[in-house]
Design a protein around this nucleic acid. Structure first.
Length: 474
RNA sequence: GGCCCGGUGGCAGAGUGGUUAUGCAGAGGACUGCAAAUCCUUGUAUGCCGGUUCGAUUCCGACCCGGGCCUCCA
């Protein structure tokens, strides 16, 4: 099967060729754990997860690493800025270490809710020695300089390919830059190691050949990815905003050490936009997984909404679109439940030829640059196909669940379980009274009883085989 | 200022040089005492103007509009 991905470096959709056959090494820039992660972050995690599942279904062994940035960084190289981790600690009256743990727990809970296959998740603070080692190597190679009182900086003019990923060379970047940073040799130079301020003790700081301080932001991803995936690896992903700075800087600090190319495929995800602008402006406020759960949405409904769009296309988040996705998702679950039901009533044998055909068709679509929306069209077509029996459809849904992670069968089974809950005696009694009323064509009495049953939390439904009493969804 | 990406039916969002997905919502019908569920049917959509072409929504150019990045951000 041919796998294709859009490579930001070449700006083309390329056929994927692994460094090692049937294996893929895959690094994703993860969250800074100083606050709740919003739905925009979740979109990125879901995109990573789909790529991973696509590889797994294609028979690859996947080594997926996603870091947690638990080191504070200055918000800007230009001035003193604020340290996000320390800001979080002050806000919550906790140590920075406690803050990190709190939000690691929180994001892991979200990832579980969204049915993400857990990646390997290193923490930046566990790789300080590796980061210092990289800075030392860059210093030995002559790529660094020190600004007294501030830190060790990377001299981007020493790296001929600087900015290649973003499609601009250094002089273009210079002309386009809006701010100038005093002390730096080039506006694009960035900090590799920051010196701790003289006047105050930081909670997170370490000794280094250059003095007590803490690592710059970009170096951690180079250090952890090299350590865990090797000096060369297949795929590096992240949000699209990382192209120009973070990933360009990662390349600049890594390729002098490991050679070129360091990473074969760069994949970037477009943003989920809140209606009033970027999600991150309201980071931690309301648009989180726990928040939508409280509003009664199944996290799978959000995942389904994300899969309706393409990862390289920005998507607007709104309650209207989430509602539409929720309805669409529930409708599929209902139909899958009917398939399970029908298979329980009249077991059929699956048709392996049809299974293989549809399996290939859907996997091909997703393998072609992750066209999840188109794969969901096939899901609808599969449900409508009346020449495929329930057993075959269900087996295909098992595959679809592995590939898209939407837990259709799980939710369908839950629905059936809910529907099989026995009604209590008083409800049953009312339902039988209603049957009697109906027999006498006493429609007023019948509807009254149905309302009473409804108020008690049950639905009574007339079918051609008699009545069904079903517990209402919570 | 530099770079990049879009503008598709009521909404969300695909694909495609020539019968324009899919979903949600809406309408009509079947079924039902009425509901619910389900099924069937249904919609004069591709920003504007040129060009290439037998033919463009799809390719090319200009324009208008919107968005993103360039500063921490998934």
């Amino acid at each position: 099967m041919t796998i294709k991905l859009y490579n930001t470096m070449s700006r083309k959709i390329e056929e994927f060729k692994p460094l090692i056959p049937n294996q893929v090494s895959f690094y994703s820039c993860g969250p800074t754990v100083y606050w709740n992660q919003h739905l925009g972050n979740m979109r990125t995690f879901i995109s990573n997860d789909i790529i991973k599942r696509m590889f797994i279904e294609n028979g690859f062994k996947v080594n997926h690493v996603m870091n947690y940035t638990d080191v504070g960084h200055l918000t800007s190289d230009a001035d003193e800025g604020e340290d996000k981790m320390e800001k979080g600690a002050a806000r919550e009256n906790k140590s920075v270490w406690e803050v990190a743990q709190t939000y690691i727990d929180s994001v892991e809970s979200d990832m579980k809710d969204l049915n993400l296959i857990k990646p390997i998740t290193p923490r930046a603070t566990d790789y300080i020695d590796e980061q210092i080692d990289l800075v030392k190597k860059l210093e030995d190679l002559g790529y660094t300089y020190i600004i007294p009182g501030k830190g060790v900086y990377y001299d981007t003019s020493k790296f001929a390919d600087y900015g290649l990923l973003g499609g601009q060379n250094l002089s273009e970047l210079r002309s386009g830059i809006r701010i100038d940073n005093d002390g730096k040799k080039n506006p694009t130079d960035f900090m590799l190691w920051a010196f701790s301020p003289k006047d105050k003790k930081r909670e997170m700081e370490w000794d280094s050949p250059w003095g007590v301080g803490f690592p710059g932001w970009h170096i951690e991803c180079s250090a952890m990815s090299m350590k865990l995936l090797g000096n060369h690896f297949d795929i590096h992903t992240g949000g699209q905003e990382h192209i120009k700075v973070h990933h360009s800087d990662e390349i600049a600090q890594s390729e002098p050490i490991v050679g070129k190319p360091w990473v074969n495929y760069w994949v970037h995800f477009a943003w989920l936009m809140a209606k009033d602008g970027k999600m991150s402006k309201s980071a931690g406020d309301s648009l989180t997984v726990p928040y939508i759960k409280n509003k009664g949405y199944d996290p799978m409904e959000f995942r389904y909404l994300m899969l309706l769009g393409h990862y390289r296309q920005p998507v607007d988040f709104s309650w209207v679109s989430l509602d539409a996705a929720a309805n669409g998702y529930k409708n599929i679950v209902r139909k899958v439940a009917d398939l399970i039901d029908s298979q329980n009533q009249n077991p059929e044998k699956e048709n392996s030829k049809i299974y293989e055909e549809w399996n290939k068709k859907i996997l091909d679509i997703v393998s072609d640059n992750i066209k999840t929306a188109e794969s969901l069209v096939q899901v609808q077509e599969l449900l409508k196909a009346d020449d495929i029996n329930s057993a075959t459809k269900l087996k295909l849904f098992e595959f679809i669940d592995r590939l898209l992670g939407l837990q259709f069968i799980n939710r369908a089974q839950k629905l059936l379980d809910l529907e099989s809950v026995e009604a209590p005696e008083n409800i049953k009694k009312m339902a039988l009274e209603r049957v009697a009323a109906k027999a006498e064509k006493d429609w007023v009495r019948a509807d009254e009883l149905r309302d009473k049953i409804d108020a008690a939390g049950w639905n009574v439904i007339d079918t051609k085989d008699g009545i069904k009493i079903i517990k209402k969804m919570a």
